[in-house]
């Protein structure tokens, strides 16, 4: 039971980090209808900027630098590339983001090389004892930070004028534009928010118990794709639920690996994708996604 509770907490914490990434992914999809396969490189860029900045400044400032850098990169991508393709077929646009991802990841991997960078974060490898449970501090910090960020985002999405214009644009682009909403701003801000969230996620993906930020950290962002799909690509609630599902599945499958050894080693990596396939078989639009209805 102790093991189960520990795994559950770790899973929820991991899941909240995935939810951060998936949320950015969903925001971009809602506001620009682009499935952004370059999300992995946004995440890695934010992380890399932060660990580089960490050489010269205290932890929190460095984290902020990473967040700003990733947000700027997101805006730059939107402004320099995605905006030029407006009106094109969406699956072609998705391929364009794949091209971007190839370029960015190659360049970042070249910069990072074989090194592993540490954030030298304030939590280190310390553990928290809660009754009989032992949990790394970083996991608790991840959970609190992610919950706070997601809360702030959802409130902003609901109550600020930025959130209203975002939702209006997602509802009906042309009408929103006619009502005076600047679609360019909406989509640029979506990319900025997505980049910022990804940079925070990069921090929690590379602190203890992970060794640090390396060239493959971006690959972890791939797990946010099943998270977004499980929840439904156009639903923010779905991104949260999907993130949690993926996190808990992964933590459980990794934790009980020995009991699942007949499935081979490394089943934890695979489990989120299997869950995604199962969900898609039952509900092709995801758990919370809008079912497509077309009137003819």
């Amino acid at each position: 039971m102790t093991v189960f509770s520990e795994l559950l907490i770790i899973g929820v914490s991991l899941g909240s980090v995935y939810a951060l990434i998936a949320l950015g992914f969903v925001i971009i999809f809602k506001s620009t209808e682009v499935v952004n396969f370059a999300h992995a490189s946004l995440l890695l860029a934010g992380g890399y900027a932060a660990v580089q900045a960490r050489e010269h400044m205290p932890f929190w400032l460095a984290l902020l630098a990473g967040v700003v850098a990733a947000a700027l990169l997101g805006v730059a991508l939107e402004f320099l590339v995605i905006r030029r393709y407006r009106g094109r077929d969406h699956s072609v646009l998705a391929i364009v983001t794949i091209g971007l991802d190839i370029v960015l990841l190659t360049e970042l991997a070249r910069q990072i090389g074989p090194d592993i960078f540490s954030y030298r974060d304030p939590w280190g490898s310390r553990l928290i004892e809660l009754g009989s449970l032992t949990i790394p501090q970083t996991r608790v910090a991840a959970l609190i930070t992610a919950a706070a960020l997601i809360g702030i985002f959802l409130l902003a999405f609901r109550f600020t004028s930025w959130g209203v214009s975002m939702r209006a644009a997602a509802e009906h682009r042309e009408t929103a534009a006619l009502m005076g909403i600047r679609l360019g701003w909406v989509s640029a801000s979506a990319w900025a928010v997505a980049g910022a969230l990804a940079a925070v996620a990069a921090l929690f993906l590379s602190v203890f118990p992970t060794t640090g930020l390396d060239r493959d950290t971006g690959l972890v962002a791939l797990k946010a794709f099943p998270a977004a799909i499980i929840g439904g690509l156009d639903s923010t609630t779905g991104a949260l639920v999907g993130g949690l599902v993926v996190g808990i599945t992964e933590a459980m499958a990794t934790g009980y690996q020995n009991d699942l050894s007949f499935l081979g080693s490394g089943i934890g990596e695979l489990a989120p994708y299997l869950v995604m396939v199962l969900v898609l078989l039952a509900r092709p639009a995801g758990l919370f996604g809008t079912r497509e209805l077309s009137r003819v």
């Binding site: 969406h90 794709f225 396939v277 898609l280 092709p284």
Partner: peptide
């Protein structure tokens, strides 16, 4: 899955 999903949705599903 391939019959029911379209475009980029299928792209992510095939990652599996």
């Amino acid at each position: 899955i391939a019959g029911r999903l379209r475009g980029a949705y299928l792209g992510i599903a095939t990652l599996a």
